[in-house]
Design a protein around this nucleic acid. Sequence first.
DNA 1: GATTACACATGACAAATATCGATCAAGGCA
DNA 2: TGCCTTGATCGATATTTGTCATGTGTAATC
Lengths: 296, 296
Amino acid sequence: MTEFTSRRLEIDALRALWAIRHHGGITRAAEALGLSQSAVSHKIKRLETSLDCDLLSRKPGAAMFTAAGEDLLDYAGRILGLHDEALLSLSKTSLAGRVALGLTEDTTCTDLARILGRFRRLHPNVSVRTKVRMSLVLRGMLERGELDAAIVQVFAHEVRPTDVVLFREALHWVKHPDLPLSQDGPIPFLSFDDECFYRRWALDIGQDGGVVLETVFECASAAGIVAAVTSGLGVALLNGRHLQPDMEIIAKGLPAPPALAYVVRRGRKVRNPALDTLVAEIESEISRYGGLALAS
Amino acid sequence: MTEFTSRRLEIDALRALWAIRHHGGITRAAEALGLSQSAVSHKIKRLETSLDCDLLSRKPGAAMFTAAGEDLLDYAGRILGLHDEALLSLSKTSLAGRVALGLTEDTTCTDLARILGRFRRLHPNVSVRTKVRMSLVLRGMLERGELDAAIVQVFAHEVRPTDVVLFREALHWVKHPDLPLSQDGPIPFLSFDDECFYRRWALDIGQDGGVVLETVFECASAAGIVAAVTSGLGVALLNGRHLQPDMEIIAKGLPAPPALAYVVRRGRKVRNPALDTLVAEIESEISRYGGLALAS
DNA sequence: GATTACACATGACAAATATCGATCAAGGCA
DNA sequence: TGCCTTGATCGATATTTGTCATGTGTAATC
């Protein structure tokens, strides 16, 4: 009979497992969950003992999860989804209204999609309209009242008290190791398109520091920039996610790039209960996992 | 921040909620779960505190669950389904083979349907073929090796050590209050059809006790018998589930009806790992909830 | 209207279990 | 090699969870 009490999956343990996958490691997961590393380690251990099988491989080089771990991870995702939806549904208040939401392309394939889907399900009377644009464009639309809120990239020092920070990110100057940087001549710059707001920073600051950047390549997608960097076309500003092994971070000679943050920024509209709820759900998800996970 | 740790649904608590619905009350649920009544009461209380809303109405006469309770119950069912499936999937052993299973009509709409569905999903390489027949027929098929196992109704004293008891049931002689029972003449008997094994008991025992039963009505479905009893056509043998307010249980004048049990009875086949697993899953479900629930 | 039976709530306490901080072991990397 | 990061482990607390004993409210019975 004790067999059955021991064979029970704790919600918290499943969430820990999930966080380990999301954050790539026990220590980081613990941090995100607001627990100590040993607590998370123990949680997984208990889970493994109660299931009598290994979930993490603990072998360096190999994948982090065993087959059983991956298997359980799949169930964990579904169980947690239902669990969180159950929690929300108990506090729902038959919401109705409209929400016009702006997103950057980067964030569409993160947890946000999941949250938005759930929000639709829980509040069928709220019409959510989303627009995907670049951060600068979204900010303009916010200003003009065309959006109720948007998820935009901003400089870390520009984060407003009313913004909800999803995650922070560092920018790096990168180049291919083989590309020499001459001190005098203009530096070849690989740039996102015109509306990319840190491209503007690069061109402005560049002038202050006496460094001259010459845009030799312009591409709207990160993939294009990455390809251009690895083929040695020039230097670029990339965030940590896009760093590749064959890229070299330029430590000196260029002004230190600013830190970035992805935030939920609200428009000027006075009252919008549906938006309040949506933002609250995003916030809750963030504090539960210590930030949103990016698509891997 | 502590708000989020407190807002967490324990699997055990959800199972308790589910058991309360299944067994119709905290005390019975506690018994089924192998816990004390106060433990279950506490569990629900904690759940309510953490959710900050009432789940059980505690008002006599009213429904047992509040709206929020019903809401959560729905999620609980789905979460527990996933949870249990996750547990099973981790111990699955890529089963293959064939199982020929017999069922009585009564049991098709119980938890068994759910268990069979899950079994199919978890073991797609096992072909499960089910046949719905009356208990006596199923027993014959078991004898002849046409079935690997069957869920049949048997007299409680005929339960074999190898049988897995799903639940037990009492039979009652019932009649309409207005129907007089003459001591001398034959008693009008409302019977299931010929293959109903306790109809045979009724006719046999009837003769021993000097009581003469005359079958005045024959119908394969319980609903038909119920209708016949309430219209005063005669007496019948019915199980507790089919008792109605306007029926009178006949305490004397007729031999005490035997107790019944629904059991999983296996056929003679030597080895069948797929069947072993299926029976094990049914057993596990039983001990988890203290018996299978009937359709309400 | 007292009484009994029943189902549930509640409080105190004991046992189990989770968490933390500190420490330890192992691998990756300069 | 020595440093640094990551995760395992240990002992000490803190929290959770169950049980027992008891209290409360409701209905049925005399």
